[in-house]
Design a protein around this nucleic acid. Sequence first.
DNA 1: TACTAAACCGACTAATCAATCTATAAATAT
DNA 2: ATATTTATAGATTGATTAGTCGGTTTAGTA
Lengths: 189, 189
Amino acid sequence: MEPMKEKELQILNASLDLFVERGFHGTSTSEIAKSAGVATGTLFHYFKTKEELINRLYLYSKECMLQEINDDYHSENSFKDNINALWTALVDFGINNSAMFQFILSFHCSPYITSLTKKEVETRSERIMEAYILGLEKQKIKDVPYDLIVDYLWGSVVTTVNYFEKHPQKMNPQIRDLAFDLFWDGISR
Amino acid sequence: MEPMKEKELQILNASLDLFVERGFHGTSTSEIAKSAGVATGTLFHYFKTKEELINRLYLYSKECMLQEINDDYHSENSFKDNINALWTALVDFGINNSAMFQFILSFHCSPYITSLTKKEVETRSERIMEAYILGLEKQKIKDVPYDLIVDYLWGSVVTTVNYFEKHPQKMNPQIRDLAFDLFWDGISR
DNA sequence: TACTAAACCGACTAATCAATCTATAAATAT
DNA sequence: ATATTTATAGATTGATTAGTCGGTTTAGTA
């Protein structure tokens, strides 16, 4: 991604919080501009339309998340350890970037995100996941459609992050590892 | 719930589809009225405000879902069989009532649903789940916080329903049972 | 210093929104 | 039969919206 102007980032960050809180149509461009400390004219200088804003915001958020799991794969580690590292990185990202995580969650199947944006994100996502995927040693994992396992991993991450959001006092590595076991013991034979 | 006038139901059904497709603020009351085949005046006769409409729609949807799992508990069956019946009933509801399921998913933590509505739904929900909960025999289940198990069950249902939505050709009882095993083997020791 | 282009501003506009209002028609009660 | 309430419609209203426009400031460059 190209480096971003300061005001552009301010607008992205302001709209991130507002979109999560009130949704796409529930947030007016003037509110975003005010919250970002810029004029509406400036907003439309950086983003041609409100739709372009949310699409760029989606790309930006996904990019942030993917960067977190980019360097976690180590071929010398066991398959379980690698999956655990991936799962944990995603959960940690969700906890430390609550708004971004919720945004990705809420908007990944939203009609405002164009299919072009989705495709761009998916291609990137698949390339990064590839390393983990290749390690999918069939003998240790149940004979279940590959993409069901992937969806199930993401579902488990989402459940865990939301659980920690709801019960912050229970947020500790022990329960986190316990939650991973719920996933791992489910998929392993 | 009280019996509903015909037009009231038409409005609820029309708004269900539109809210899922375009969100709360993305759907205008005039669109809802048109799609329901009534005038806007009629809509506001049955629902004082747009917010009341979405709250009543939420109650109505949850009620439909809870009715599906109301009579499935049988104390003479094993704990696993009961949990399986619950899980399967929820997945089947999600498949057969796609819009309602997505609506519940999207709006259960939405700011438009008042805390009063949420409380009303939760109380009802907890009373129905109680039977299943009581059967939670600790010796068969991992020693994990009770509400994490509940969240994890719901997460597993959501993942499974969405998977079937995405891959309709893979929607069969075999894969459904396989998905249940992913959940069950995760929580059982 | 003088020129240019990009960044930035906020008043403005046409469209759209939730909700109201007035007017009938239908149903129910007396 | 008559009075009263309820159901329905659609035109209307004041507020709000996404996006524009003309002008000003800032930053880079010759």
